[in-house]
Amino acid sequence: MTMFSSRNWREYPQRYRLEASKFKKSGKTYFPPRAVDPETGDTAQEMVKLPDTGKIVTYTVIRTAPSQWTEIAPYALAIAELTDGTRLMAQVVDCDVNAVKIGMEIRIEFRRIQSESDHGVLSYGYKFVPKWY
């Protein structure tokens, strides 16, 4: 389905720069940002940028992919916990999909996430790559 470009544009602070909200009272960071801390109900917060390294908490390899993703299939998808404890989901690229494991150290890289055929808008965001250096 065509994604209207405003929908992606609105998420740039998160997709491009990993901006998250850190609540004053609990010290907890949420990505993407939210208005209310689900633990304390606190609304006082500051913007923080997530760290760019972490570890895989769980993963899968999508082998039968919707045609939108055939270009990159099979692809690994994982939830990683970053060094500040925040968790997020992204693809794991630049490695053999069969080598992805729980506990694997990753780094976040800026990648193209979706492109609407040859004529639509390009969407960029974050993916995980093995942290090999």
Binding site: Q14, P32, A65, I72, Y75, L77, L88, Q91, S123, K127
Partner: peptide, 10 residues
């Protein structure tokens, strides 16, 4: 949609 499906979740 924005944080799972956008990133390739099925």
């Amino acid at each position: 949609q924005e944080y799972e499906v956008f990133n390739g979740a099925t």
